[in-house]
């Protein structure tokens, strides 16, 4: 499968770092791949890193919300990390807010958030 987004594992956490903008088909593939990964046992969390992403559309946003919902059903918390100001402004201007999705400033803070969430459980 042609993979646009590498999905890596650190400890029990999955990290997907989105590199550049994605086409709709890539987004769908990305979602499938992601869900397959977190299905594995010992998945304690998922971080989607958007640091290098500078453009988003509504489909990507919808998919992010979807992933959050699906992963939630599987009991895996999701954190979106490193969103850039431009992307945040676009989302807010479009009236799309990632209601209920956890966010973090960078990968480190995202990991900390997931670790803390794990402890509380």
């Amino acid at each position: 499968m042609h993979q646009q987004v590498p999905i890596l594992k650190i400890d029990d956490f999955w990290i997907a770092s989105v590199q550049g903008s994605l086409h709709d088909q890539d987004v769908i593939e990305f979602k499938e791949a992601l869900l397959n990964k977190i299905m594995q046992p010992k998945s304690r969390g998922l971080i989607i890193d958007l640091t290098v992403l500078d453009v988003v559309d509504s489909f990507v946003t919808k998919t992010l919300i979807d992933i959050r919902g699906l992963a939630g059903l599987m009991g895996v918390p999701v954190v979106i990390a490193g969103m850039s100001p431009a992307v945040a402004i676009t989302l807010v201007e479009m009236g799309l807010n990632l209601e209920g999705v956890d966010t973090a400033l960078n990968l480190q803070k995202g990991l900390d958030k997931l670790r803390n969430a794990g402890k509380e459980r």
Binding site: I80, A88, I89, L91, T103
Partner: peptide, 12 residues
């Protein structure tokens, strides 16, 4: 509200 939402998207 928009400013607060955008900031929270960044994780603040």
């Amino acid at each position: 509200i928009k400013t607060v939402q955008a900031a929270s998207l960044l994780g603040a």
